[in-house]
C-alpha cells in the first residue's frame, strides 16, 4: 500500500511535465492567438509591438522559451502576468480563498444532501419520501446550474425585496457572517445537480447492500437502526459514492467558474477566463499545471481510500 502510494506519487512530476509541455506548445501554435495583439490598442505601433514581444520573451524560439520557463518553475518562480506584470503566484494566491471556499462548500453540500437523500430513499423504498426525492433527482439533473444561480439573484428581490450580494469577497476569518451570506446560498444551489446525481448513485448502491444477508443478520442481532443502516449498510455502499465525489470535485472547477461569473466574484475561475481571453500565457500555464496536480493528487487519495473502506482491496 505504501509502496503503491509512493509509486503513484513518483508519476506526478512526470505527468505534470507532460501536461506543461502540451500546454506550452499548444498555446504558442501560430494560430492560437498572439498575446501582443490582444494587448495592443489602436495607438500601438509595430515598433511598440516588437518591443513588447521582446519584453515578454516571445521573440525567442518556442523551445528556448520553454527551457527558460521550466528553469524558472524549478526554482519556484512562475513568472509575471503579461497584463499588469505582477508575479503570477501572488495574483493566484489573492484569488485562491474565494474559489477554495466555493468548492469546499459546494462539495460538502453535495455529499451531505446527496448521501442523506440517497440513504433515506433506499431505506424507505417506494414510500412517499422516496418518490419525492426521486422527482427531485430528475429535476435537479435537468436544470442548468447557472439558471438556478440567476434565479437566486432575480427571485428573492421580487418576492422579498432581498438582493443577494454581488461581488466583493470577504474573508471568512474577518467577517464570518457576511462571508457565509455571500457564499452559502449560491454554493447550496450549485450543489443541486451534483446531489441529484449522488442521490441516485447512493440509492442504487444502498438498495444493493440492503438485500445482502449480513444486513438481515445485523438486524437479527438486535442492532439499532443507525448501526444497521450506517455502519453495516452505508459503509459497504461507499465505494461508488467516493468515486463520484472525486469526479464531482473535478466537475466543480467548471461550477466555480460559473458561480464566479454570475456573482462577479474575482476568483481563480474568473482569472482563468480573462487570462485565456487575453492569452496571458504565464497565468494559463500555471493554472493548467496546478489543476492537473490537484486532480491527480485527488485521484490518488480516492484510490487509496478504497483500500481503507474495503480491506479486500489491496494495492501492490
Amino acid at each position: 500500500m505504501r509502496q503503491y502510494a509512493l509509486r503513484r506519487l513518483a508519476y506526478l512530476p512526470l505527468i505534470a511535465a507532460l501536461v506543461s509541455v502540451i500546454t506550452f506548445f499548444t498555446l504558442r501554435m501560430p494560430w492560437a492567438g498572439d498575446p501582443v495583439t490582444y494587448m495592443s490598442t489602436q495607438n500601438t505601433t509595430v515598433e511598440d509591438q516588437e518591443r513588447l514581444r521582446k519584453e515578454l520573451g516571445l521573440d525567442k524560439p518556442v523551445a528556448v522559451q520553454f527551457g527558460l520557463w521550466l528553469g524558472d518553475v524549478l526554482r519556484g518562480d512562475f513568472g509575471e502576468t503579461f497584463r499588469g506584470r505582477q508575479p503570477v503566484l501572488d495574483e493566484v494566491m489573492r484569488r485562491f480563498p474565494a474559489t477554495l471556499e466555493i468548492m469546499v462548500l459546494s462539495l460538502g453540500f453535495t455529499v451531505l444532501f446527496g448521501v442523506t437523500f440517497g440513504v433515506v430513499s433506499a431505506v424507505r423504498q417506494d414510500s412517499f419520501a422516496d418518490y419525492g426525492l426521486r422527482v427531485f433527482a430528475v429535476f435537479g439533473q435537468s436544470v442548468p446550474d447557472f439558471f438556478l444561480l440567476i434565479l437566486l439573484i432575480v427571485l428573492p428581490s421580487i418576492w422579498w425585496n432581498y438582493s443577494h450580494p454581488i461581488g466583493g469577497h470577504v474573508s471568512i476569518f474577518e467577517d464570518p457572517i457576511r462571508n457565509l451570506r455571500l457564499y452559502v446560498p449560491p454554493t447550496l444551489l450549485l450543489a443541486v445537480g451534483g446531489s441529484a446525481l449522488m442521490m441516485r448513485v447512493t440509492r442504487s448502491a444502498m438498495l444493493e447492500v440492503l438485500r445482502q444477508d449480513y444486513m438481515r443478520t445485523a438486524r437479527a442481532k438486535g442492532l439499532g437502526a443507525y448501526a444497521v443502516i450506517v455502519r453495516h449498510g452505508l459503509r459497504n455502499a461507499l465505494i461508488p459514492i467516493i468515486t463520484l465525489a472525486g469526479n464531482h470535485l473535478v466537475a466543480l472547477f467548471f461550477g466555480a467558474v460559473i458561480l464566479e461569473q454570475v456573482f462577479s466574484i474575482n476568483g481563480l475561475g474568473q482569472f482563468f477566463l480573462t487570462s485565456a481571453a487575453q492569452r496571458d500565457f504565464p497565468v494559463m500555464q500555471f493554472l493548467v499545471l496546478y489543476s492537473a496536480l490537484v486532480v491527480m493528487g485527488l485521484n490518488l487519495v480516492v484510490d487509496l481510500s478504497y483500500a481503507l473502506i474495503d480491506p479486500r482491496i489491496k494495492y501492490s
Binding site: 498555446l27 492567438g33 473535478v250 466537475a251 467548471f254 482563468f272 485565456a276 494559463m284 489543476s291
Partner: peptide
Amino acid sequence: WAAFPSIVFYFMLITAFG
C-alpha cells in the same frame, strides 16, 4: 480525460481549433 477539468480541456481545444 476524465481527470482533466473540462474547462481547461475546452480552452486547449479553442487554442487548437479556434
